[in-house]
Nucleic acid binder design. Structure first.
Length: 493
RNA sequence: GCUAAGGUGGCAGAGUCCGGCCGAACGCGGCGGCCUGCAGAGCCGCAUAUCGCCGGUUCAAAUCCGGCCCUUAGCUCCA
């Protein structure tokens, strides 16, 4: 059973074969740091994270590069806003820090490198020079454009034909271009005041900043949007990479242009597999910064926590669009609870028996096998996380049944089940089960246990009203109480 | 207009590439039972699907082919 993925460029599912046997070169199209990240961004990160984790699980070493676009007119437009700093760099640093904090909060595996555009200007310039030397780009009024007619396969990713495309770029740069679809590799001068005003979220007055500029063979200027990814990808991963991941809204023009400029420059295939994640929608339209209908990652983290957010994302395949709603989050929370409760029940049962226990529970044993087989098949089938999650959840029923039966436990089967859940839920899906050894958690556990002891005394004395009051009080601060034959148990929030 | 993805039960969402195991997964919600002092959790079970519409191919179609309708996205910055 090997991995197959749906490649946007062919539109078909293809067997995955990396350039080298051992390593997977993964590039994730990162964020423009002009605002706080929202749940749409985190969806891409999370799916890319699970892909990364699965590739490692099946034995590859993953070199994961995820860029930050820290040079952009929208960033420059926000300079001077309270708390963001006076320069484009300061604004970019502010939001980069907040995005990294979000990523930490979501328990994403760290990328190998997080390259910034501002740190790759020399590489960008030399790539542009290479394109000019090869006859694929031309200078015009201090700006440099890519000539789309020099790359015969232009449009192969998005299936667009040049004659059907409208002009790319700002109206004022069209007169400088040879063809309407040519796109800027380098833009002369700073950010235009019009662009600043268009993206500004506050009034800059007369003191309009113009963003950073760099010296180049064509004069002072700034890199175009698309060239950065090509330059950073090549710098850190080489001319041909295995997987390029990004949101579906980037297929055209961004990824199309990346392919054109990269392959025109090197003559080599830029990325072997293009994987695009479906967009997150709310109320029938996509969540986006420009529409202002977004829910930021940090808000979501404080309201739901990382596990519930993951549970939400993993209820749909990466390639499908997904709708955000309060109901969807509630269901995601319930699904996560189901998984974590079963895990905790299983662990508690396992801790209560010894390895010498011989009772055999064939149904649990076969459930473990089925889960392993089905989970693996699902993940290898284009990272079908919904199917994989279904396999994992079906194991929760088996574990709960086994624990509920109360009879002698099957130590080996239970241990296998717990390890299977840990491997898939934590290592592959990136969930984090609560561990009682955490300092605060440990103290809270002790306190909750103390209260429950008092409640048990009240119950034994028949003071049910008093006992229920104590239970309600615990519930109100998020501690769930559950009575069972073996006495009360509780779960911390 | 051009391009791409999608339309499956109350909700959400697999299955469609490789037609039969799909009398349609997993889950949420609903209903009933077990357990419980009660509740929750858990377990067991039940109900709800003309698989967008029309036609075709086939012994057999949610799955293949053709036409149509609708939704979302891209063609301007966007994950």
């Amino acid at each position: 059973m090997t991995l197959s993925v749906t490649n946007t460029i062919s539109g078909e599912r293809e067997a995955f074969e990396p350039v080298t046997d051992e390593t997977v070169l993964l590039y994730v199209c990162g964020l423009t740091v002009s605002d706080d990240a929202h749940l749409g961004h985190a969806r891409v990160w999370t799916h890319a994270d699970v892909m990364h984790r699965w590739l490692e699980h099946v034995g590859y070493t993953v070199t994961h590069v995820e860029n930050f676009t820290d040079v952009n007119e929208k960033i420059a437009a926000r300079a001077g806003e309270p708390g963001l700093g006076e320069t484009e760099e300061a604004v970019a640093q502010h939001f980069t820090a907040s995005v990294i904090a979000d990523m930490r909060g979501l328990n994403l595996k760290r990328a190998s490198v997080y390259p910034r555009v501002s740190e790759h200007i020399p590489e960008i310039i030399s790539l542009i020079e290479r394109l000019i030397d090869g006859g694929h780009a031309y200078e015009s009024n201090g700006s440099v454009y890519f000539d789309v007619t020099t790359y015969a396969e232009y449009g192969k990713l998005s299936n667009q034909k040049l004659e059907h495309l409208e002009s790319q770029g700002d109206p004022d740069e069209r007169s400088e271009k040879r063809n309407p679809s040519d796109f800027a590799l380098w833009k002369a001068g700073g950010v235009s005041p019009e662009a600043i005003q268009e993206h500004a979220k506050h009034d800059h007055g007369d003191d309009v900043p113009c963003g950073q500029t760099w010296d180049s063979p064509w004069g002072e200027g700034r890199p175009g949007w698309h060239i950065e990814c090509s330059a950073m990808s090549m710098t850190h991963l080489g001319e041909t990479i295995d997987i390029h991941v990004g949101g579906h809204d980037l297929v055209f023009p961004h990824h199309e242009n990346e392919i054109a400029q990269s392959e025109a420059a090197t003559g080599n295939q830029f990325a072997n597999y293009w994987l695009h994640t479906g967009l997150l929608e709310t109320k029938g339209e996509k969540m986006s910064s420009s529409l202002g209908n977004f829910f930021t990652v940090s808000e979501a983290l404080s309201e739901f926590g990382p596990n519930v957010i993951r549970s939400f994302y993993l209820s749909t395949e990466y390639s499908s669009k997904q709708t955000y709603s309060v109901d969807a989050m509630t269901e995601a929370e319930t699904r996560w609870e189901r998984l974590s409760r079963a895990y905790e029940n299983g662990v508690a049962a396992l801790d209560s028996v010894t390895a010498q226990t011989k009772a055999a529970d064939e149904s649990l044993r076969s459930a473990v096998e089925t889960t392993r087989t089905e989970f693996t098949a699902a993940m290898n089938d284009d990272f079908n996380v919904r199917e994989a999650m279904a396999a994992l959840l079906s194991l929760t029923s088996a574990v709960n049944s086994h624990v509920d039966s109360g009879g002698p436990h099957d130590y080996k089967a239970l241990k296998d089940a717990i390890e299977t859940i840990e491997t898939y839920a934590e290592d592959v899906f990136g969930f984090q089960f609560t561990t009682p050894s955490d300092g605060d958690v440990s103290l809270a556990s002790d306190l909750a246990a103390l209260v429950l002891e008092i409640r048990t005394q009240e119950r034994d004395a028949g003071n049910y009203d008093r006992a229920d009051d104590l239970r309600d009080s615990l519930t109100s601060i998020g501690i769930e109480v559950q009575d069972s034959d073996d006495g009360p148990t509780f779960r911390l929030p």
